[in-house]
């Protein structure tokens, strides 16, 4: 018997659905992360209302330090850094959401098919995954952007493809873990077809780790997008992006050291929020049993 008995809970049906949410909410830092991300999304959506200046307007002295007029100073063209940061959040969030969608959209079906059907489907899918894994994420994105050409959509595709292997691997492992469980056999024994079994019985039971991976991928995408922008291959100018601002800042390290500080802090805050959400989800999915759950992708040393 188990050392820690799990008593039958007798919560009514309505409240039960909230149990996972409550477990998530019990982790204070997860709530902080969720709140931070919500705030960021709101700021990005309401950028025209929130930003004090037009992000493209070159109406200040160049490379000013923080002051009353320009809270965070101005860049080399005299544009307001705070306003550019606020608009830049859009680029990061779009890249994050898009890359996670692409990664999950390709990776999850691939992993599900590979894990459930096995045999040659598995072999083919896994070699494909091995191949994608063999190219470090940032290099893959670089090459893909060269092939596909620049642009916001291609950028998302390039980052998202890099996230496919992890989604596929994860889904496959989870699928393998439950493929031969009795309730899957039971579904087949009831006469359910293979697609029906995969979609209705297997998929909902492997969603937990996938949801967490979505968050992990989003935070990876934020960093990779910034890295690409830093190399000059990210969100095309003049649209502001945090990575692009860091690239500019690097050229003016001696004149304006504070410039390089703020876009980086935005990146840190975003990744931090996503990481906290990921940990909270982990607790919610694992039923709070694990004191230190974790999943990490090596975003690579970009």
């Amino acid at each position: 018997m188990s050392a820690a008995p799990n008593p039958p809970t007798s919560a009514p049906a309505g409240r039960r659905r909230l149990a996972a949410l409550r477990r998530f909410a019990r982790s204070r830092s997860a709530v902080v992360g969720a709140a931070g991300l919500l705030l960021l999304v709101a700021v990005a959506l309401l950028a025209p209302l929130v930003a004090p200046f037009d992000p493209a307007a070159q109406d200040g002295e160049p490379l000013l330090g923080p002051s009353g007029a320009h809270l965070l100073g101005t860049d080399q063209l005299g544009r307001d850094i705070l306003s550019r940061l606020i608009y830049g959040a859009r680029a990061s969030l779009i890249a994050a959401a898009g890359a996670a969608a692409v990664g999950a959209g390709i990776g999850v079906p691939l992993g599900l098919l590979a894990g459930y059907l096995g045999r040659w489907v598995d072999a083919v899918a896994m070699r494909l995954v091995d191949l994608l894994l063999a190219v470090p994420g940032i290099l893959l994105a670089l090459v893909m952007i060269v092939v596909l050409g620049p642009g916001r959509f291609n950028l998302i595709l390039a980052i998202g493809i890099g996230a496919v292997p992890e989604f596929a691997r994860l889904t496959r492992v989870a699928t393998l873990g439950i493929r031969d469980r009795d309730f899957v056999l039971a579904a087949r024994g009831m006469g359910a077809s293979t697609p029906d079994t995969m979609l209705r019985t297997v998929l909902p039971n492997v969603l937990g780790p996938i949801v967490i991976q979505v968050v992990v991928t989003a935070s990876m995408a934020v960093v990779v997008e910034a890295g690409l922008a830093f190399l000059g291959l990210g969100t095309p100018p003049p649209a502001p992006s945090w990575g692009g601002m860091l690239q500019d800042a690097r050229s003016y390290l001696y004149q304006s050291p504070s410039y390089g500080l703020f876009p980086g802090l935005c990146l840190v805050a975003t990744v931090f929020c996503l990481d906290r959400i990921g940990r909270g989800l982990q607790l919610a999915v694992s039923g709070g049993s694990q004191h230190l759950g974790t999943r990490v992708t090596s975003g690579g040393a970009v």
């Binding site: 469980r181 009795d182 309730f183 056999l185 039971a186 579904a187 087949r188 024994g189 009831m190 006469g191 019985t201 909902p204 039971n205």
Partner: peptide, 17 residues
Amino acid sequence: RRSAQMVFQDPYASLNP
């Protein structure tokens, strides 16, 4: 499969959670 049905050993594993 409709006219023959199966009941499994482990009731913790045989129901879709």
